[in-house]
Computed example of a mutant assay.
Amino acid sequence: MTKLIKPLLVAGLLLAGSASAYADDAPAAAPQHKGWHMDPAKREEMRAKHLQMLHDKLKIQPQQEAAWQTFTASMKPQKMAKPPMNENETAPEKMERMMQRHQDAMQKHLDALKTFYAQLTPEQQKTMDHLHRPHGKPHGKSEMPAPANG
């Protein structure tokens, strides 16, 4: 048994080495989803389509339009101004400052959402709640069935 382990280990290492060498020669595959690295015009087009879909599904009434405009403006990506560099700041202090800036931006989004949400009818609120459930949750039932033991 121990006589087989060494040849199998060597064969496995050789196979892994040749596979990685082959992979280096292969052309890199194009990324399937570029996320925030996509063309800004394309990203803005997708954002506009999403907001139009949301507007249509919520059936925004004319008296709700001002709150809708404020809400969508708060969702528009803003380029954060780079704070002045402080050479004496430690890494944790820099991260804490960055986190605070992000938290401030999120608070503005939350405030706009709360104001907008308060303008919605109960039916619209239900639609909004349904559209903004956590990703990965199954549609329909709120719980996954327990796996069968067998």
Results as ranks from 00 to 15, higher is better:
4 L>Y: 07
5 I>L: 09
5 I>Y: 05
8 L>R: 10
13 L>S: 09
13 L>M: 01
14 L>T: 15
15 L>R: 10
16 A>I: 08
17 G>E: 03
18 S>A: 13
20 S>T: 13
20 S>R: 14
22 Y>A: 05
22 Y>D: 00
23 A>G: 14
24 D>F: 08
25 D>E: 06
25 D>V: 09
25 D>F: 05
27 P>K: 07
27 P>F: 11
28 A>C: 13
29 A>P: 03
31 P>F: 09
31 P>H: 01
32 Q>V: 03
32 Q>T: 04
36 W>Q: 10
38 M>V: 00
40 P>G: 02
41 A>N: 01
44 E>P: 04
50 H>N: 02
54 L>K: 02
57 K>V: 02
58 L>W: 09
59 K>W: 01
60 I>A: 07
61 Q>T: 15
61 Q>A: 12
64 Q>I: 04
65 E>K: 09
69 Q>N: 11
69 Q>E: 15
69 Q>H: 11
70 T>K: 12
71 F>D: 01
72 T>R: 02
74 S>N: 00
75 M>T: 10
76 K>R: 12
76 K>W: 03
76 K>E: 14
77 P>L: 03
79 K>N: 14
83 P>Y: 13
85 M>L: 11
86 N>Q: 10
86 N>Y: 00
86 N>V: 02
89 E>I: 08
93 E>P: 04
93 E>Q: 15
94 K>M: 12
94 K>L: 14
94 K>T: 11
95 M>T: 05
96 E>N: 10
97 R>F: 01
97 R>D: 02
97 R>G: 07
98 M>Y: 06
98 M>P: 01
99 M>R: 15
99 M>C: 15
100 Q>T: 05
100 Q>D: 05
100 Q>M: 06
100 Q>N: 15
101 R>T: 09
104 D>G: 13
106 M>Q: 04
106 M>D: 02
109 H>R: 13
111 D>Q: 14
113 L>E: 00
114 K>W: 09
115 T>P: 11
116 F>T: 04
120 L>Y: 03
121 T>W: 08
121 T>E: 09
123 E>F: 05
127 T>D: 01
128 M>Y: 12
128 M>W: 02
129 D>M: 05
130 H>F: 07
131 L>M: 14
132 H>L: 01
134 P>K: 03
134 P>Q: 02
137 K>C: 13
137 K>D: 07
140 G>S: 11
141 K>F: 04
141 K>M: 13
144 M>L: 14
146 A>G: 11
147 P>L: 06
148 A>Y: 10
148 A>I: 06
150 G>E: 15
